[in-house]
Design a protein around this nucleic acid. Structure first.
Lengths: 411, 411
DNA sequence: CTCTTTTTTTCGAGCCTCGAAAAAAATAAT
DNA sequence: ATTATTTTTTTCGAGGCTCGAAAAAAAGAG
């Protein structure tokens, strides 16, 4: 916290900075890197030489544009895809998927399988996860062992990013995936909230729009949120936090899946939309497992004629709108991405949502609010996990605290 | 953002670190500083020697405890109170106050005056502010010019900390106090939200309790909030943010002073408590200027017997409770300080508040929630402003970007 | 084939932090 | 009274790092 900066921190941080610049730019020249990092060409030259000799970067002679300019042509450098391999695992409702990804971010292999997550025992769930990891690790290229595993789960994770504290996809709580997987494979593992990974993925995919401040809202069975503020992923003080879906919309209102009442999710989650569309009492749980297909069908009816279906989407949009309004009262308006299957019904929710926001303090700078939709959340989660893992490698493995001078023998 | 670290940044940051360590510890020895900063004794020796020769620190031979230990006694260093002078100005409802404060944080002079802020014209309000600043600056010790002014206002300030965007204490909006005062006095000025300064003040006063994560709620005419997360003051992306009082408690509910409906403040602000206690319709504005004394009298009645007064405080507590519950869903539970005159009625609000929180997602880790009350907000605001100004001097003035080698003439 | 332009590397200078040793300043022991 | 011990602080040289200037490299232009 109040720790001074040591001399060796300098190189470490600047190395990480150079790697980060290359990861963002793709194939920058040394001159480009010097420009973005504001370090001198001599320093960049020294650092890139180190990184190349360590196999982290490679030169790629073909600058994307030869430019036919006068003078010595720029030599582009890029990440050496073979420098490391990482593994992403996504555990969501009734589905487990994993992907093996190289250091440049390209997918090497992947696997996806259906699982009745709600019914599995704790052991079976863990075993399935260990199994998919084992199979994919087996497929890692020779000499490029997997160096990091990031597991994204729908649910609340702890702030040390090691455990799943609670999840709607399984009745079991407090599953210490990190310790389990680390003892099995001896590879560092972090456990992340799926919506937080969506936010990281969005920024990676579109850094123009999703830059310093933005919000990702996942509309699915439940309502999730990931948020980036001041360029940093927002998390709770003790958990992954950002449980937007469990902010209170109407005190003592509709029954939520979490057992409490009046949560936003109890008005805007899949099951809540179904409950309202079918005229079921809002104080009772929904017995049926409401699927994406159910919602699609309801949305079609809602578009075709007024009625309880349309009203159900209106109520959902209103709940999200008031929630965003309250959130904007705290953080000010920011761009919003509506992610997940619910984004397909955004047309039905947009107007009530904007109307609600306009009735809140968040409506003041409404110019800063803009919506974008992305119905398929899975690729975003995977990309977010990959970025999280690769950033870790960049910083902790390839820019380590010790300058590692092997050969100096003390005895 | 992606800027590398230069060599001269090193010394700059470590200087700031040393100053900060001295400010926190009071009278540490060089050894103490080395321990808290994790820098080597040699480095600390060099930096403190610089700081002493520049008049920023002074040695104070009398270590607070002679300790009678063996060995060379520690020589304590402390901030040189004469190194700088700063000015804090607090503009709140019907009151303007200012204080001249030395570099060690001791008050040199202060002035306080009543003002009908709601009725003053924009020019009169600005003139009053300029006037109080002018009078106090005049009292600055010889050779110690005021180096920084921090103005705290009840209301929303912009994120560049220069303007008052909107305030309940005046009908005028968008007052650029920084530019006005800077052109008048040629001293850097920042404009801050009062509740944010309360948070800074709380941390300074009790760093044990108010450390990495906590919330300060100001219960006064309106409801304000300042929040520290991960050790950093939380602000909006475009403004001071943290408008807890304008999160929505009941959609389309009671009329708020801001003109919207259902805000927490419309249930828990002074005027809202009065409105409910007197059985006035919640859809109508309160004509009367509800004073702290009114609330005190209502609280007395509420304590003496059941009735609308007690119910009014219950409703207020409930509104704050649900609001905190929603906030905790986002950030996880954290210690709360209830600040301002409303804290005197906390006994009437505590139970409904806790009951409400228990009905939200924030109630899960309720062990991490704890309340503390501080009825007098003014000293906290002033201390927060002082710390803000002094921290600025520590970092920007006494640890500047340029190593400042005057005497080197280029021509 | 030479000149010009641009990129990249090389090299020495200047800082900064660190560790080891020395110096300083006290108490404890003889 | 003097010496030994202990702890704090300073001094000094070593090692690293970044930077600027100059050189080298690698092209196109003339």
């Amino acid at each position: 916290m109040t720790v001074g900066i040591r001399h060796d921190d300098l190189r470490r941080r600047n190395r990480a900075m150079v790697i980060s610049a290359v990861r963002r730019a793709g194939q920058p020249s040394r001159t480009d890197i010097a420009a973005t990092t504001a370090l001198s060409p001599s320093t960049i030259s020294a650092i890139t030489a180190d990184l190349i000799s360590e196999g982290i970067l490679v030169e790629s002679r073909t600058g994307d544009a030869p430019a036919a300019r006068r003078g010595r042509p720029q030599v582009a450098v890029r990440l050496n895809a073979k420098a490391a391999t990482i593994l992403t695992v996504v555990l969501s409702m009734n589905q487990l998927s994993a992907a093996l990804i190289d250091y440049a971010g390209e997918t090497i292999a992947e696997e996806r399988r259906k699982l009745p997550t709600l019914e599995l025992s704790r052991e079976a769930l863990v075993d399935e996860t260990v199994g998919i990891v084992r199979r994919l690790i087996g497929g890692a290229p020779d000499g490029q062992p997997v160096m990091r595993i990031v597991l994204a789960v729908q649910g609340i994770t702890d702030s040390s990013e090691r455990k799943l504290l609670w999840s709607p996809i399984t009745p079991h709580a407090d599953i210490d995936f990190s310790t389990i997987l680390e003892s099995e494979f001896e590879i560092p593992v972090t456990v992340e909230n799926d919506c937080n990974m969506i936010a990281v993925g969005l920024r990676w995919r579109n850094p123009e729009r999703y830059a310093r401040d933005f919000i990702a809202v996942l509309l699915s069975h439940g309502i999730g949120m990931g948020m980036v503020l001041r360029g940093e992923l927002f998390t709770g003080t003790q958990s992954s936090g950002g449980e937007f879906g469990h902010m209170i919309h109407r005190p003592d209102g509709a029954l939520c899946r979490c057992g409490r009442r009046g949560c936003i999710e109890a008005y805007a989650g899949n099951y809540a939309i179904w409950r309202n569309a079918k005229g079921l009492p809002e104080t009772e749980a929904v017995a049926r497992d409401v699927t994406d297909e159910d919602i699609r069908a309801l949305a079609e009816v809602a578009r075709s004629r007024p009625g309880p279906e349309r009203e159900a989407f209106r109520i959902a949009g209103e709940a999200i709108g008031f929630g965003l309004g309250s959130l904007f009262a705290l953080i000010d308006p920011a761009p919003v991405a509506i992610v997940g299957h619910g984004a397909n019904a955004f047309d039905l929710m947009q107007k009530p949502m904007l109307d609600a926001i306009a009735r809140t303090a968040g409506g003041v700078h409404s110019g800063a609010i803009s919506f974008d939709t992305e119905p398929d959340e899975m690729p975003l989660i995977r990309e977010g996990c990959a970025m999280r893992a690769l950033t870790f490698i960049d910083q902790e493995v390839f820019s380590p605290a010790q300058t590692a001078t092997p050969g100096r023998i003390v005895a």
